[in-house]
Structures are given as structure tokens and as C-alpha cells.
């Protein structure tokens, strides 16, 4: 997964707190950078940005012009975490700190360039990597999560009958419908692959099922070009986390299993001609043992 350390600037310029602001401005201008971490005896004590410099008298010391509360991020944090921090504090740079030492700086432009690799060019939705990252993060934060897996019915036939350009337009429209309905605070939507979309949500399983039905209904009520009927089949899987041994390994495992169960449930929905099939809540701790049982039930 894309980490901050992969995109940050490692060539680091720092400055002491008793240096003049005009000296800081000169260093920033010559080096083409927008900020300098302020370090006193090896310890990060502040950051001086071009905005701080503009608002200060040039005769001042850096200590009297700098921002004292520095927002830092570890190098192993994801670029999504970095983006959230920047949005939360309304800042454009984060100092990357490994334990106590500064190892780099990451800017908003670097984050946005990194994130653009994870946006699907056809629909403008997140790619599956974002979905996985968000799901893992929610589990880390001890949220109960559910996965909603959506599959456009007979999309292969639509492509064959109307052509791929028409098929792409359908996928764009599907993305718009889904994007309008998701609650950004609770749901993360992605184009999973081809004609498959997925949502990871913090809604409880029952609520996730209702939401899935709402999505199906939205398609039923929509008018499509050439007056064809587009429907979707949806699988929902969710559960509780308990007794997780290794958070990183187990959370990845849990997410992969949830998406697998939800996709199988959507296949089952298609076969049964039911709009939504839900996999009951399960304890993740026991999921390893019950995995075969669950899959058998879905077949």
C-alpha cells in the first residue's frame, strides 16, 4: 500500500529557532521549498512556512515567527491518513517523524499526485485499493464494518449488444447513482473491477441491508438510454471483530474474507433472482474455522 515514506521529500532543510526570519526566507527561496522544520538541539520545536514569513517582521527570530504546534505523521502512515490529517488541520505540509527524528516532509501536492493513482479514470470513483485501506483503517479503529458488493446484471450482454462505448456510459451512470446515495461519513465506495462496485460501511449489518435495498431500488427507478433495464445484484457481509491477534495481518485477512463473502452473496442473489443476499454477522475470531461452512452455505 502507498505509504508516506514512498512519496515524501527526503532532502531535508532545517533551521534553528534563533536564526533570523530573513535568513529562513533566503533558504526557502534558494531551495525552492515552502517551509522549514525548526530544530533545537535535535528536537523538533516548530515549523516556519512561507505564510508565517509573510506575516512577520523580517527582523524577527524564527522562534518568534514559527508555528509551534507541528502536525507530524509517521513514515509508515498511508497517503489517505496524510490527506485526512491535512484536511483536519487545514494545512498543506506534514513533517514526517520516525520515533523522534525528522525523516522528511510531505506536501499536499505530493499527496494528491499519489492519490490520483487510486482514482478510476472511467468513473472517477476510488479504486479497490482505497476500499481495502479504508476497511483496514476502520478495523484498526475498532469499528464494526459491513461490505456491500454490487454487480451489474448481464453487463457482458449489454456490451455485446450495444457496444463497449454504451457499456462505459452505463458504468459512469451507475457510479453517479451510487455516489449520490452513499453517506461519505459512513460509506466508502469504489469501482472494484469491471462492472463490480463495493462499499465498506460502518452501518450495522441490518442497516447495511436496508441501504443495499435502497441502492437496488434506485436502479429500478432510473431511466436508462435505449430504454433498457439495468438492475444490480447485491451481496452484504459483515461482522464483529474480537480476539484479533495481529491487527495488521488479521485486519487484511478479515477485509479479504468479507469482500469474498459479499461477492459470493451477490452471485447467489443473481442466481436466486433476489435483489440482496446477506451473510449473517459472524465473529471474525471464529471466521477462520467457520470459513468453509460459510462458503458452503453460499453455494
Amino acid at each position: 500500500m502507498h505509504m508516506v515514506k514512498n512519496i515524501m521529500s527526503q532532502k531535508l532543510y532545517t533551521i534553528g529557532p534563533l536564526t533570523g526570519v530573513s535568513r529562513a526566507a533566503t533558504i526557502m527561496e534558494r531551495s525552492g521549498i515552502g517551509c522549514l522544520p525548526v530544530v533545537d538541539e535535535g528536537k523538533l520545536v516548530g515549523i516556519i512556512t512561507s505564510r508565517d514569513i509573510r506575516g512577520s517582521h523580517p527582523n524577527r527570530l524564527v522562534a518568534d515567527a514559527m508555528t509551534r504546534d507541528v502536525v507530524t505523521i509517521p513514515p509508515t502512515a498511508s497517503i489517505w491518513e496524510a490527506k485526512e490529517l491535512m484536511e483536519k488541520y487545514k494545512i498543506e505540509r506534514l513533517v514526517v517523524v520516525d520515533e523522534k527524528s525528522i525523516v522528511g516532509i510531505v506536501t499536499k501536492a505530493q499527496i494528491m499526485a499519489g492519490l490520483s493513482k487510486y482514482i478510476d479514470s472511467l468513473t472517477g470513483l476510488n479504486k479497490a485499493e482505497v476500499f481495502y485501506e479504508r476497511a483496514r483503517q476502520l478495523l484498526k479503529e475498532s469499528h464494526e464494518i459491513a461490505v456491500i458488493f454490487l454487480d451489474v446484471d448481464n453487463f457482458g450482454l449489454i456490451n455485446k449488444e450495444y457496444g463497449h462505448v454504451y457499456g462505459d456510459n452505463i458504468l459512469r451512470k451507475v457510479a453517479v447513482i451510487l455516489d449520490k446515495l452513499v453517506d461519505k461519513n459512513r460509506d466508502t465506495l469504489c469501482r472494484y473491477a469491471g462492472d463490480e462496485f463495493a462499499v465498506v460501511t460502518t452501518r450495522p449489518l441490518e442497516e447495511a441491508e436496508k441501504f443495499a435495498l435502497q441502492l437496488v431500488m434506485a436502479f429500478a427507478n432510473e431511466k436508462w438510454p435505449a430504454e433498457i433495464k439495468i438492475t444490480i445484484s447485491v451481496g452484504v457481509a459483515g461482522g464483529r471483530r474480537s480476539g484479533i491477534r495481529n491487527l495488521n495481518e488479521d485486519s487484511s485477512y478479515i477485509v479479504k474474507n468479507l469482500i469474498n463473502m459479499a461477492s459470493l452473496a451477490s452471485t447467489k442473489a443473481k442466481k436466486l433472482k433476489r435483489p440482496v443476499v446477506v451473510v449473517d454477522a459472524i465473529e471474525f475470531k471464529e471466521m477462520v474455522r467457520k470459513q468453509e461452512f460459510v462458503y458452503d452455505n453460499l453455494k
Binding site: P17, H57, N59, R60, L61, D64, A65
Partner: peptide, 12 residues
């Protein structure tokens, strides 16, 4: 607030 010297300079 925008004086030529700030509190840290005064302290020094």
C-alpha cells in the same frame, strides 16, 4: 504582534 522583535528575542 508584528513588532520587529518578538518575545523570544526579548527573552534572549
Amino acid at each position: 504582534k508584528k513588532a520587529p522583535i518578538g518575545p523570544e528575542a526579548v527573552r534572549q
